[in-house]
Amino acid sequence: MDSSAIVTVLIAMLGGAIRVSTPFMFVALGETLTEKSGRINLGLEGNLVLGAMVAYAISFHTGSPWLGVLAAGVAGLILGALHGYICKLPKVNDIAVGIAFMSFGTGLAFFFGKPYIQPSAPRLESIPLGNWTGNPALAQALQVNPLFFVGIVLAVAMAWALRNTRWGLIVRMTGDSAASAKAMGVSVDLVRFLATAAGGFLAGIGGAFLSLYYPGSWNQGLSSGQGLMAVALVIFARWNPIRCIFAALLFGAAGAIGPALQSVGISQGYYFFNAAPYILTLFILIASASSKGAAREAPGELSITK
């Protein structure tokens, strides 16, 4: 592989990181909030797919993609709120309800999404940030959707708020010890309900990015498990919003490796290159995990890490 090929692959990875990461980012941030409050919602894949469908449909009918984004968030919010409400009932397992909601959300999206597979809906515009480069591939890689920046700002804001605000303290306390939160007079159920609903909202927006920007179309195969993977990335990012951003970027960049390597003529074993995001994530997990570290950072109330 000569140097120009390496540059091509690196540019593609940069572009991939920017283009592909946003849905992972939103779902992972939403899930981080939910999990920080001590509950897990494994069903955000359902929110993502339903959000994608609703966003596309609304954009198609109203002509406004941003209205579509909002509607996707609301659809996600409703699913999240349902999840949050149900899981506060005693003896109901949040992981299982999440998986059920995955089925329910995708089912609704497929059911009502039939008429929207064919039409073209107005899509979100990107901001060209790379025109100064004079390199068309790089310029393309630097076409950035506003939602990407929203995601980053949100992550920073969330990280700050969790650490420095009263609300953040309440969420963290609820997640670490329900008993002490109760002792402080906090309604654990209410906090978790709100955190799950807000998480659902963000996952819905992640879906809107898929259908309205990249790849920018609605069909039943749109997601291929991004929502599920994003939930897993939260554990990978150890419940830290900033690390969620890096995890999403890494995952997006790794996803670009397969096609990019083929485009410079390396196609041996493309199945493994295509699986690069999963392999890479696993190796980093193994390398970085230690029996104690992960447990220390996990919210104490989280069923999945107990």
Binding site: A12, V20, P215, L222, G255, P259
Partner: peptide
């Protein structure tokens, strides 16, 4: 779809 878009790019 996502990988198809990546491949196209």
């Amino acid at each position: 779809p996502v990988r198809e878009a990546e491949a196209t790019n």
